[in-house]
């Protein structure tokens, strides 16, 4: 555990908490993509199957359980409790266009051709692109509430901090995983446009509105 890794995990946790607070306080999931939330739930479940096979640490187990349970809770809030506020019409990204290629890629490029390893690889690839339905929704409506912007910033920062963690681990421990590094770089790049808007607009107190 190094400072980048810890900061990344805390940023990830903060993102999830911000999203739950936004939905709970406003009693609304307007502006949030249910498709992205479904993809994240698939990511956590397929990645953390090792919960039942391998014990790493109390921290590791605790965080995995938190990520799985909060993503299920988010989906429950969006599709059951606050269903009426869910913006179906704008959340029109076809997730099979992400699920199928990620799975096929996981079958082709993986560290070992075993069920757990393929599902882990699939989850890494899927996580890299899971935010696309959310970014698509923001681009369709042309704006995002400030708390949604903070959520996206924290979520994007998490993998960027992991990139620093991987650089650190490569030099400090000689540890590296090319699949995670490659997917993590793609994931971070997808947020760059959003990061720019966040820094130039939201941090200056303006609403995140896309240029027409």
């Amino acid at each position: 555990m190094n400072i980048f890794r810890l900061a990344g995990d805390l940023s990830h946790l903060l993102a999830i908490i911000l999203l739950l607070i936004k939905i709970w306080k406003t009693r609304s999931c307007a502006g949030i993509s249910g498709k992205s939330q479904i993809l994240f739930a698939i990511v956590y479940v397929s990645r953390y199957l090792d919960l039942v096979t391998t014990f790493i640490s109390v921290y590791n187990t605790f965080m995995k359980l938190v990520f799985i349970s909060t993503s299920v809770a988010t989906i429950y809030l969006m599709y059951v409790k606050f269903k009426a506020t869910y913006d179906h019409n704008h959340d029109s990204f076809r997730i099979e266009f992400l699920l199928v290629p990620c799975f096929l890629l996981a079958l082709l490029i993986n560290n070992a051709f075993t069920p757990l390893e393929i599902l882990w690889t699939f989850s890494i690839y899927l996580e890299a692109v899971a935010i696309l339905p959310q970014l698509f929704l923001v681009s369709k409506t042309g704006e995002a509430e400030s708390i949604t912007s903070h959520y996206l910033f924290a979520l994007g920062s998490y993998r960027a901090l992991y990139l620093l963690n991987w650089i650190y681990r490569y030099y400090a421990e000689g540890h590296y995983d090319l699949i995670a590094i490659f997917a993590g770089a793609i994931q971070t790049i997808l947020y760059c446009d959003f990061f720019y808007l966040y820094i130039t607009k939201v941090l200056k107190g303006k609403k995140l509105q896309l240029p027409a």
């Binding site: 990645r47 391998t54 965080m63 560290n111």
Partner: peptide, 10 residues
């Protein structure tokens, strides 16, 4: 550290 196992990252 064969095939990056066990996965200590989240």
């Amino acid at each position: 550290d064969l095939y990056g196992q066990p996965k200590d990252e989240l």
